[in-house]
Computed example of a mutant assay.
Amino acid sequence: MKRLATLVMMVLVGAGCAADAADEGDYALEDPGEESVAEAEQALYLYDYSASNTNSAANEANVKKKSISIGAGETVMIGTTVLPGTLFKGDTYLRLYNFLDKQVAYNDDAACNLNAGSLISFTSPYGTTESFELWGGCYGNDACGPNTVQIARRDPVVFSYSGQDTNNGTVNTTNKTYALKANQNVRISTCSYAAHGAKAIGDTVLRLYREIDGAWVHVAANGNTSACEGQCDLASLIQYTVPATGNYQVRAGCADAEECSGTVVLYRQ
């Protein structure tokens, strides 16, 4: 089956964060954000594969395929690197096709992550949930594997903010609350390289709180991420494994008394 060669590529990368201790603050509870449209339809672990002679994942006979359900307008990150639980050996290559057999995204090496793993970021342009097909292969005709492919789905609640005098995100913050499920891995970021759609201007700070018995308890924070050296140094990235189903609040601020702004995104995995 012949595939169209025209591409629409969107590549995102990033990894690494540090959780800093901080004091709990008092802020009002907000409405939880809705969960990803397609999350209930498919496990976020995709598949394992090994391959060879794939012609950079273009040889249909030798690639390893996986059907993926993506919701209307949903943004996903799919990779063999960066996302928790991913694994690659050798030089992987990923291609994504829509239901019309048209290639809509691809990635060879995750730029700025300085490794041979692959990471695709893609936003579905369709108004309904659709089925896509992922082709997993290797660069050129090399062999690669075993590889583990994971997917992260962006929450529809994306918010922008600007702040000043937030005392490292402890006062005067912009807050959003999300309903999260136990054992989910979440990525919360203002770093565009770590999370597609995120943005940071200035030195951002993010904090995460969990609602326990009506009170907000501080569970994670990040002020500077090493997701991409020289590109995202003052942006923030929290990676957190949810211990129990419930409400969790993201509080966005700035370092010390500085002024900053950003767009915060949360990916569920």
Rank of each mutant, 00 (worst) to 15 (best):
N115E: 05
N55G: 01
R153G: 04
T86P: 02
N107L: 00
D31S: 13
G33N: 11
V157F: 08
P84E: 12
D48S: 09
S56Y: 10
A22Q: 08
D108E: 14
Q150N: 05
S36I: 06
E30P: 02
N53F: 08
E35F: 08
A72H: 04
A143F: 07
L114N: 15
S160F: 00
G33D: 12
K66M: 01
Y139K: 12
G25H: 04
G85T: 09
P125E: 12
G163R: 05
G90V: 06
R95N: 05
L46I: 14
N53I: 06
N107D: 14
G163A: 15
L94S: 01
T81D: 09
E30Q: 15
A40R: 15
G127L: 11
L100Q: 15
G136K: 06
S162L: 03
G117W: 03
D31E: 15
L87M: 10
E130T: 07
G25Q: 12
Y93M: 01
L96F: 11
L87W: 05
P156A: 08
Q164Y: 10
A19I: 10
C144R: 00
D108F: 00
C138Y: 03
E24M: 04
K89F: 04
N53G: 12
L87C: 05
L114Y: 08
L46Y: 06
A19P: 00
A22Y: 07
Y106A: 11
T129I: 11
Y139Q: 14
E130D: 11
A72V: 02
G79I: 00
T92R: 02
D108A: 11
Y161N: 00
E34G: 15
Q42E: 15
E24Q: 03
N113R: 05
G71F: 07
D155F: 06
E39Y: 08
A111M: 10
N55Q: 14
G90N: 07
N141P: 05
A51F: 04
G85R: 10
T75Q: 03
E34T: 13
V82N: 10
Y106P: 01
Q150L: 04
E74D: 01
E39V: 13
N141W: 09
N113V: 03
E24L: 02
V37H: 03
S124C: 08
A40W: 12
D101K: 14
G33C: 15
